[in-house]
Computed example of a mutant assay.
Amino acid sequence: MLERMSLDELKNLRKKLDRAIASYETRKRQQALSALEQAARDHGFRLSELMSDRQSGKSKSRAGDAGPDAAPAYVNPENPEQTWSGRGRRPRWVNDALEAGRTLDDLAA
């Protein structure tokens, strides 16, 4: 069946698959986040409290103290630890996702 499809049809199919994969990953990430929030509540905390405690221990950037770090605006769906504020040069994972048919809205935090 795929052999009979035109290049445009194959590209359209790939875009649909990429969207379906991104949607699945988003749902799974939301389920994991909900589980984490529930675990934090079970221990008497809010997840945001625990995460802010963790992030406050990070070292300053190499450029020195250039003010507060920008909040992450985009998250790598493959590795949620990789974020981008939308400032400066795009990370490779952002460019890769855009080339795969995703949009910046798909990567929004």
Rank of each mutant, 00 (worst) to 15 (best):
M1G: 05
M1N: 03
L2M: 05
E3Q: 00
E3P: 00
E3Y: 08
R4D: 08
R4K: 12
M5D: 00
M5W: 09
S6V: 02
S6C: 01
S6P: 07
L7R: 12
L7E: 14
L7Y: 14
D8W: 08
D8E: 12
D8R: 09
K11L: 14
N12I: 05
N12V: 02
N12G: 13
N12A: 15
L13A: 08
R14S: 04
K15N: 07
K15Q: 11
K16A: 11
K16G: 01
K16D: 03
D18V: 13
D18E: 14
R19F: 06
R19V: 03
R19Q: 07
A20Y: 04
A20K: 04
A22I: 06
Y24F: 14
Y24Q: 12
E25W: 11
E25P: 01
R27G: 09
K28G: 00
R29F: 06
Q31F: 04
A32F: 01
L33Y: 03
S34P: 00
S34D: 08
S34T: 00
A35E: 02
A35L: 02
L36P: 00
E37W: 00
R41M: 10
D42F: 03
H43K: 15
H43V: 10
H43C: 10
F45M: 09
F45S: 10
R46P: 07
L47D: 00
E49G: 03
E49A: 06
E49H: 08
L50V: 07
S52R: 09
D53F: 11
R54S: 04
Q55G: 03
Q55C: 09
S56G: 14
S56L: 10
G57E: 13
G57I: 01
S59W: 13
K60V: 12
K60L: 15
S61N: 12
R62T: 15
R62V: 14
R62E: 15
R62N: 14
A63T: 14
A63K: 15
G64H: 07
G64N: 02
D65W: 11
A66K: 14
G67L: 12
G67K: 09
P68D: 13
P68F: 06
D69Q: 12
A70G: 11
A70D: 13
A70K: 11
A70T: 06
Y74G: 05
Y74H: 09
V75W: 05
V75M: 08
P77Y: 04
E78R: 14
E78W: 01
E78M: 07
E78Y: 07
E78G: 03
N79K: 04
P80C: 01
P80F: 04
E81C: 00
E81A: 05
Q82K: 10
T83M: 00
W84V: 05
W84P: 04
W84M: 06
W84I: 03
S85Y: 12
G86N: 10
G86P: 05
G86K: 10
R87L: 13
R87V: 10
R87A: 15
G88N: 11
G88H: 13
R89K: 15
R89Y: 11
R90F: 07
R90Y: 14
P91M: 09
R92D: 14
W93Q: 12
V94M: 04
V94A: 02
D96Q: 13
D96R: 11
D96N: 15
A97Q: 06
L98M: 06
L98D: 02
L98P: 01
A100T: 02
T103L: 05
D105C: 04
D105P: 07
D106W: 08
L107T: 06
A108D: 03
A108C: 09
A109E: 01
A109C: 07
